[in-house]
Design a protein around this nucleic acid. Structure first.
Length: 467
RNA sequence: GGUCGGGUGGCCGAGAGGCGAGGCAAGGGACUGCAAAUCCCUCUACACGGGUUCAAAUCCCGUCCCGACCUCCA
């Protein structure tokens, strides 16, 4: 298919994507609450939406991509208090960790990355609109609530009915100032020792949902094309964003995309379950490009069941592709120019069907390797280019400068010279059929992490990637 | 209780009425002094029970099992 089709959580259907403004796409993705170190589930979300963004850019759209940072919330305050550091220092520390993880996984920086605490003014303005038009109320205790009973479309994203929800355990109506237990806080009154900002209704801090509505409006306007986030944000976070923004009279998001989780033993990865795998820990085992390859290889709406063996298998598969591109570059003499194959393009247009796209990469790989064997440079070049084109969309292009390690070229020239000397020794040993000597050289180099392969074009050497 | 996803070969993982995605593993073969790499071949499946249809992994009904959300969540 030549037009991009995307799933929409609100309709539960895949349909043709048409932006509000021709040629432009505006995206808001819920980013991190910076309260702890990123695990691979967090980063999967970022990587999935990064692939969407890259594909949109490739398809010719000008993309405005907003991903927020939630730098104030209950958990941040609570953990900062436990660790006896200021809440803002705690938030900043983990924001830096997320930024580092995004960079290690080659996630493009957002067009803008707004922090909640930098948008209190916009939140107050939004609350004022909601209070003025009767959608929200400030009962006088410093809280501000949104009244949900009157909202026609409340819970349509998650397909629930308000009366079917489990009784809200956290609201004791006898002491609550809420008109209805389902009403949610736009703004929370300051408790002793907590940070606060002044408002017409009392000093306090933002509720969880308000920031996204305020910041989406600030940067993308009343309506925008795509709102993304993890599956678990559908309710309550996204429902409440819709409630706030629509009550304010905004069109808000035209389409909703949600990524599935990384699971372990069938269960969602989460800090509270204690089964989270930190990005930095995995990056001690595999390279960023390899972890990214693993995370993109599943469809974004499918659960990705993590296991070490699955990760290892994925790494091996990626290294095969990488090895081919290296050999192709050697054989052809130039780095392949990225090209988009129809098979990969069709797959991406079908709701970002990366797994189907991977099948086309496999075809390219086989044909390309065959081309090397046959010495058919045209075939090698075409397939290497198509692989590189596909990898570029997935953010896994080994030629991407974000991944290439800047080793000194003097050093690698010297290294090549040394290995070539050894290979010359080995060649003469082989010529006189002294295989014990030739194998000793190969084994010796292997012990140093240098792999020797005999090809039709002569022996080639490579340094094994760390793992 | 409500809502939403799943169950596919030894394993991973797509597909969503006809044409057996793909990968890994396994076995066989080609190449090789050996190896590595590469290529070729082989194997195999749709949780269960009904139904609709010329045709069902795919649609319908029922059953079982797994997971998620229901105010912390990517």
């Amino acid at each position: 298919m030549s037009a991009l089709n995307l799933y929409d959580t609100s309709t539960r259907e895949v349909g043709v994507f048409t932006p509000i403004k021709s040629g432009e796409v505006s995206i808001y993705v819920c980013g991190a609450t910076v309260q702890a170190s990123p695990h691979i589930g967090h980063i999967r979300s970022a990587v999935n939406f990064d692939v969407l963004r890259r594909w949109l850019i490739h398809s010719g759209f000008a993309v405005v991509f907003i991903r927020n940072v939630t730098d104030i919330d209950d958990k941040i305050l609570q953990k900062a208090a436990q660790e006896q550091v200021p809440w803002w220092a705690h938030a900043m520390k983990y924001e830096r960790e997320f930024t580092a993880a995004f960079a290690a996984l080659n996630v493009l920086p957002p067009t803008y990355e707004p922090r909640a605490t930098g948008h209190i003014t916009q939140m107050i303005e939004l609350m004022q609109i909601l209070i003025d038009n009767g959608s929200a109320y400030a009962p006088g205790n410093g809280d501000v609530y949104l009244e949900v009973r009157n909202l026609k479309r409340y819970l349509t994203l998650s397909g629930q009915r308000i009366d079917d929800l489990m009784p809200a355990a956290d609201v004791e109506m006898s002491i609550s100032m809420k008109r209805d237990p389902r009403d949610f806080a736009l703004w929370k009154a300051a408790k002793l020792g907590e940070p606060s900002w002044p408002t017409p209704w009392g000093a306090g801090r933002p509720g969880w949902h308000l920031e996204c509505s305020a910041m989406a409006y600030a940067y993308l306007g009343e309506s925008f094309d795509i709102h993304g986030g993890g599956l678990d944000l559908i309710f309550p976070h996204h429902e409440n964003e819709i409630a706030q923004s629509e009550a304010a009279g905004y069109g808000f998001a035209k389409r909703w995309l949600h990524n599935a989780w990384v699971t372990q033993s069938g269960e969602k990865m989460s800090k509270s379950l204690g089964n989270s795998l930190l990005v930095e820990v995995i990056l001690q085992r595999v390279r960023g490009i390899e972890l990214r390859w693993y995370l993109v290889s599943a469809h974004y709406r499918s659960m990705l069941e993590y296991s070490e063996s699955a990760l290892d298998e994925s790494v091996v598969a990626f290294r095969r592709i990488e090895a081919f591109l290296k050999r192709a570059t050697e054989v052809v003499g130039t780095v392949p120019v990225p090209l988009m194959s129809k098979a990969f393009s069709d797959a991406m247009n079908d709701d970002l069907a990366v797994p189907t796209g991977l099948a086309s990469i496999s075809e390219n790989l086989r044909a390309g390797n065959q081309g090397i064997t046959d010495g058919d440079l045209g075939v090698v070049s075409k397939n290497a280019s198509e692989i590189r084109g596909a990898l570029g969309i997935l953010g896994c292009d080994p030629f991407d400068s974000n991944f290439t390690t800047s080793s000194s070229s003097d050093l690698s020239d010297a290294m090549d010279g040394v290995v070539q000397l050894m290979l010359k020794e080995r060649a003469s040993a082989r010529d006189r059929k002294d295989f014990a000597a030739s194998d000793a050289i190969r084994d010796g180099l292997l012990a140093l992490g240098i792999t020797i392969e005999d090809t039709a074009q002569g022996p080639r050497w490579s340094i094994m990637e760390k793992s």
